[in-house]
Design a protein around this nucleic acid. Structure first.
Length: 508
RNA sequence: GCGGCCGUCGUCUAGCCUGGUCUAGGACAUCGGCCUCCCGAGCCGGUGACCCGGGUUCGAAUCCCGGCGGCCGCACCA
């Protein structure tokens, strides 16, 4: 399924230092699904997260939390993950389809109450009851294997206390809601934001950064009063905004159904103003800020059978590429009060939030948009990758490029090197700047094009005469001259989106 | 996890069938130098690989087995 562009992007990412498969250079038996970010990848990842903070956390007045990856076992008892993550499976040896052992026994032998049985006991029953594969009819099965998508670990010396590496940051937000609401002085809706690692023991990690065993998420949990979601004003700002859905009913046709937020809400499709607003917010984030073309973004509705155990409504925000097709990049789930109730029940602690409107504490509902950072970064590199003849350009949104600006002496003469180095030193104060004097000027430009550096500064002989330098636009290769004193301002304006021509006098 | 195909410098590859002239060759990239007044130019030089382990053999990149990884399909993706 790897086509040219993805292949080239993956190769470039490893060669230039965005990301690569971890540990493999030294240990050939390193397991799949563990990816490391290199120097450029770290810079880009930070910028991707910072943009999310600016557009979502800050503007929606979110409170940011940084919890631990190691989580006590009870947390996932309460959330239902241990139950839903611990399937005991058998594989049909003839057609290689997998089935849940308890389901087969229930359906074919009428047995119930199988939850407590061990793998061995289940296998014995399958043989005894002559269970058949529902697909091919064979009655030869592999032994029962426990399939656990969570990484399990033991805490302390006794090894008695089970803990898990979290498969989502969500639960660590949910258990802290009371304190967080207090810190936020009884704010409701309460918007909790968390960036962090999550872990899933995938059976077969594939497609590079798409399915990994350890990954980065940027999640928002909005806790609200289901009776009074309280989003009237915010909703007004998106009332006429057009959302792009692939509703479950339209899936056969495969045609995106566009509707305004107003229409989506009136049809009851998007449940309430709060959910509708956040759907609009994230569609805008992905298209206007991360820069994906509108036609390559859609909300794919998951039907009743596909949804997770906690969700009442669920749309995957997907991004389209030739190479990977539609891929989920943001998971948007209306989780109701499922998680809050779960933790209350198991812990015996009341997990309620105070509602000013009702003058009492209420059990909040929760809506959660959750970004897969690694998938987002891969798609940014993939969809902005351009090969123009021999020239390779990453046309990343300017503010997401790992390097803001590069500085070169036109040729390697001592006086030009001196002037360029000085300018580089100044730019380092405000930018991710990069200096290079190797090879020819053309080669240096091309290297910067490949990693998406939006603008290059070149110091030439004229610089020595009148203190002007040239600014070169990655996308057009056009150049303007700018006075050194104006340089920082010009670069800032350029990264903020102004066209190059407005920043200086064109070069012939 | 199952099945098919595959695994040589960073990348693409020569060599493998027919074991020894392979201290593994080339191109591009990369690094250093020279040159260069604006787009991977040229010249010189350098770093750099047989996925890992075991077996057969006097001798293994080459033959055999196992592991790991990659691609594709199935399954999985709460």
């Amino acid at each position: 399924m790897f086509t040219m562009a993805l292949d080239e992007v993956m190769e470039m990412a490893a060669r230039r230092g965005f990301f690569w498969q971890g540990f493999r250079d030294v240990y050939s038996d390193a397991p799949a699904g563990l990816w490391v970010y290199g120097p450029l990848g770290v810079k880009m990842k930070n910028k991707v997260i910072e943009l999310w903070r600016e557009k979502i956390v800050r503007r929606e007045e979110g409170v940011e939390l940084d919890s631990t990856c190691i989580s006590p076992g009870s947390v996932f008892e309460a959330s239902g993950h241990t139950k839903h993550f611990n399937d005991k499976l058998v594989e049909c040896l003839k057609c290689h389809r997998r089935h849940r052992a308890d389901m087969l026994l229930e359906e074919q032998a009428g047995l119930t109450g199988l939850e407590g049985l061990s793998e061995e006991e289940l296998y014995k029953l399958i043989v005894e009851k002559m269970v058949k594969c529902p697909y091919c009819g064979s009655s030869e099965f592999s032994e029962v294997r426990r399939f656990n998508l969570m990484f399990e670990m033991r805490i302390g010396a006794t090894g008695k206390d089970i803990a898990y590496l979290r498969p989502e940051t969500t639960q660590s937000s949910v258990v802290e809601i009371r304190r967080l609401q207090q810190i936020a002085r009884n704010k409701l809706p309460l918007v909790i934001c968390q960036v962090g690692k999550a872990f899933r023991n995938e059976i077969s990690p594939r497609h590079g950064l798409i399915r990994t065993r350890e990954f980065n998420m940027a999640e928002v949990q909005i806790f609200f009063d289901p009776e009074y979601p309280d989003y009237d004003n915010k909703f007004e700002s998106v009332r006429k905004y057009r959302l792009r859905f692939l509703p479950a009913y339209a899936r056969e046709a495969g045609e995106v159904v566009e509707m305004t937020c107003e229409e989506a809400l009136e049809e009851g499709y998007t449940i309430n103003k709060l959910v509708t607003y956040w759907l609009a917010l994230y569609q805008k984030l992905m298209t206007e800020d991360y820069g994906f073309p509108l036609e390559k973004v859609r909300y794919y509705e998951l039907n009743e059978h596909e949804r997770a155990h906690y969700a009442r409504a669920h749309w995957d925000l997907q991004i389209y590429s030739e190479d990977l097709g539609w891929v989920e990049v943001v998971n948007n789930a209306y989780r109701t009060d499922h998680d809050v109730i779960g933790h209350s029940r198991l812990s015996g602690r009341e997990l309620k939030l105070y509602s000013e409107k009702r003058k009492q504490s209420i059990v909040p509902h929760m809506y959660e948009p959750s970004i897969g950072i690694d998938r987002l970064i891969l798609h940014l590199l993939l969809l902005n990758y351009r090969r123009e003849g021999e020239r390779v350009v990453e046309k990343l949104p300017r503010r997401l490029a790992p390097i803001d600006v590069a500085v070169f002496p036109l040729v390697n003469k001592p006086e030009l090197i001196k002037a360029a180095s000085e300018i580089y030193g100044t730019l380092l104060e405000d930018f991710e700047a990069f200096y290079d004097e190797s090879g020819s000027i053309g080669r240096r430009y091309r290297r910067m094009d490949e990693i998406g550096t939006p603008v290059c500064v070149t110091v030439d002989y004229q610089t020595l005469e009148d203190k002007t330098v040239t600014l070169r636009d990655r996308d057009t290769m056009a150049q303007v001259r700018v006075h050194v004193d104006e340089l920082k301002t010009a670069i800032k304006r350029f990264i903020a989106g102004e066209p190059l021509e407005k920043l200086g006098t064109p070069m012939g």
